[in-house]
Design a protein around this nucleic acid. Structure first.
Lengths: 204, 204
DNA sequence: CCACCTTATGACACTCTGTGTCATTATGTA
DNA sequence: TACATAATGACACAGAGTGTCATAAGGTGG
């Protein structure tokens, strides 16, 4: 999400002058100040000193301004899946892998208070809460792949990954609603409701 | 959702001339024929022979035309929770209650093929899939209440109900994607990934 | 130092969703 | 027949999101 990585360092052409992260932060401020629906994309663009169309070039939708910052968490969870597998624990409890992934996501967040603000904003607006399904789609795929790699059948993996996404999201929301500094206990409690169905090793 | 119940039988005033169910059915036909996003509310209104504003009086949003028909399922599940409790099995496995509720929802559907079409449409459009969070909100509350009444702690109930909603939704989507007539096996398989966390009876 | 090329930028116009207002119409009741 | 009630739709509006296109700005090669 940060504006400097990913981009393969172009050799020519006009360089970007807009700092996407700064604009997103500014938008969050405006949302906190005037309310989400009372702040139009036009308002945000004007406050950022850019055109509305330019704003849309960096953020595909208004919701992206809020959800955009969650991508690093997904990325970190993905990496945790990778290392879990490589450590050769794959014959063990895949739930341990899910726990590790959830905790790794937490560790990837530089400033939890910003995340709390973001999640509270999401909780307050159904339009944003709904977006969780789409925003977590990459994580759903990664989780599914991890579970299948570790011996679960396709359908069991699908249901377990759906449950994993839903419970961890709910855990984050519960954490955000309160004032506890550490979200990990919430995540661990949430994952307590999951189990690996019997006869998991159907393949290979 | 049907246009005749719920309404407390007014004593005077002009009676409604619009059949909401018929309009929703017509909209589904148009969506199937021209695609969801290629069909505007204006198109639907025109095809139904009514004004766009009147259409919005019956359906708060375009998504409601698709999701509206799922309310009976939620209602039936709710009733199943009630009877489960009254049968005095509440000291037993609450997961059995969830299974009963899921199955009861299936039994409440008059024509499964219509539901399959609806769910396929939902699956194809992220905009509609997202809506599941909002559309299932009543069911989330009912499930939460059921679990709490049966001795789960607030947080465990919250996580379990989130997982219940997510897995059953995923089960419905899996069923809709295929051609099996009965969704129940999908639902039962999905619920296999759930468990009641230890120390559930923390209250009362 | 200049020409060129690539890309960011924003002005303009447009469609569609969703909402609010308000006059009109139709129907059952007194 | 008058009245109250509620459905209906015409009109107008804000805002999200998209497409097109001319222009500006900086780097690269001559």
């Amino acid at each position: 999400m940060t504006s400097e990585d990913a981009k393969p360092a172009r050799t020519s052409g006009r360089p970007a002058t807009i700092d996407a992260d700064a604009v997103a932060g500014l938008a969050l401020d405006l949302f906190a100040q005037h309310g989400y629906e009372n702040t139009s994309m036009e308002d945000i663009a004007r406050a950022a000193g850019i055109g509305r169309k330019s704003l849309y070039r960096y953020f595909a939708s208004k919701a992206d301004l809020v959800w955009g910052g969650t991508e690093p968490v997904v990325e970190a969870s993905t990496l945790a899946f990778g290392s879990f597998h490589r450590q050769g624990k794959s014959d063990g409890d895949v739930l341990a892998g899910l726990r590790e992934a959830a905790a790794a996501g937490v560790a990837a967040i530089p400033d939890l208070s910003v995340t709390r603000g973001r999640l509270r904003l999401i909780a307050e607006h159904a339009e944003l809460t709904s977006r969780s399904y789409e925003s977590l789609a990459p994580q759903r795929e990664r989780t599914l792949a991890f579970l299948v790699e570790n011996g679960l059948s396709g359908s069991a993996a699908r249901y377990l990954s759906a449950a994993y996404l839903a419970t961890t999201f709910e855990a984050w929301m519960q954490w955000a609603a309160g004032s506890d500094p550490d979200p990990v206990p919430y995540l661990m409690a949430a994952l307590e409701v999951l189990r690996v169905p019997l006869g998991k090793a159907g393949v290979s």
